[in-house]
Write a protein that binds this DNA or RNA. Sequence first.
DNA 1: GCTTGTATGTTCGATACCGCACATAGTGAA
DNA 2: TTCACTATGTGCGGTATCGAACATACAAGC
Lengths: 246, 246
Amino acid sequence: MPHSNPIEDPKSNRLLAALPPADYERLLPHLELVGMPLGHVVYESGARTERVYFPTEGIVSLLSLMENGNSAEIAVTGNEGLVGISLFMGGVSTSSRAVVQSTVQAYQLQASFLMKEFERGGELQHLLLRFTQALITQMAQTAVCNRHHSLIQQLCRWLLLSIDRLPTNELHMTQELISNMLGVRREGVTEASGILQAEGLIQYQRGHIVVLNRAGLEQRCCECYAVVKKESDRLLHWIAKDNLAQ
Amino acid sequence: MPHSNPIEDPKSNRLLAALPPADYERLLPHLELVGMPLGHVVYESGARTERVYFPTEGIVSLLSLMENGNSAEIAVTGNEGLVGISLFMGGVSTSSRAVVQSTVQAYQLQASFLMKEFERGGELQHLLLRFTQALITQMAQTAVCNRHHSLIQQLCRWLLLSIDRLPTNELHMTQELISNMLGVRREGVTEASGILQAEGLIQYQRGHIVVLNRAGLEQRCCECYAVVKKESDRLLHWIAKDNLAQ
DNA sequence: GCTTGTATGTTCGATACCGCACATAGTGAA
DNA sequence: TTCACTATGTGCGGTATCGAACATACAAGC
């Protein structure tokens, strides 16, 4: 069972935590805590954005789907941001699907309410847009990584991005699901995982993966993880991740 | 020589053309026409965004670069948008490079001025954000296309996206440059181009490509072109492209 | 004309990944 | 315990793309 905060607090979401007190107070009465299990579809491709979600725990993947059922993850979001940017970007809907990759606790907010707040301009708007740019960076790097890097390198990137958004070094995810995210064959993930395990970097069994050597994984990885990490830190420096531990 | 408008008009940029008259009038005195040749680097990765550009003619590519010199195009922009979104997204800089892919005429605007206008909220802000979402869609689709589709399909997508932004069916671009955009070997582009030419879809010689059969090219293409086109049209319907011909 | 440079064409072996088929091993329910 | 199911492992031929080396061909300037 993934450990959960005994006392839930919207400020466990770093974006909410970074809001000026006045903005935060206005949002607070409208925030409602919801849980979403692994595999839950937060948004379907093309569907209207009725609510946005500020995760406090867990991971949401943004996936591009194709006609033949193939897919690829284009970005992930955890407690550093929100799910549902198409709302304030003016698109009403997105062409990608948002799926829970690791059990999520999130504060949901009605679309219409967030829009009113966004239209005020000011800090809330700035924070949302900066987060969106971080997401754009992640998508761009994913695109180039898909083109140029090996499966095993991409797996390392994926593992690192995931555990960055989790409280421990463990994640619950089958190789089959990972292969859907990366848009590769399941057998390919099996082989790459086997190598990483043989090298002592990870350990896994039936959907339970433990990262044993984070630094080693970073070394094994392509530059893409570092690029995304650095740019996200630059854009989302509002609150150091560690501050949340207080 | 690419044909150029005898009378330059900022409204040849569809985004500027879609502005409410009052907003447009405020911008007008600050717009300055500039030309940029093929290969010109509009923004370097990581550099500060001092000016933004509203193209009236030509194409700008957004490229992700890697340490080893490899690259991949993640999106293109023509007269339907602007170059320099990182300005109003709050990032100051981007991690990608913007390069002129086909000779550009654009109206440039000082960053500080556009920011003031953006902060007013209203229609200008909405237009810029919607354009940004269209760009996000393009990036997401590029990522999944890189993963799943063949070189020749990607070449078709690239050709279609390019001629959509040009006044004729011709484009000036060597196979070497195309290979940089797609992030593949030059020889691969040679082979794919040869096939498309044999099929009567295109004709080319030394950096001059003519699309002979647009519909055929769309059929040969993966779904990615149609997805991007459809979503862009949905988001950027402010002004039908054809209206510009008036 | 000739020369030089750039653009395109061709070949060859190497390889990463694919699709498929099937084997093995945990895990939970009957 | 047994069964059924899910997760992982393995082997095989097929193929798209790679990297490199080299051949041809067009174009512009002298």
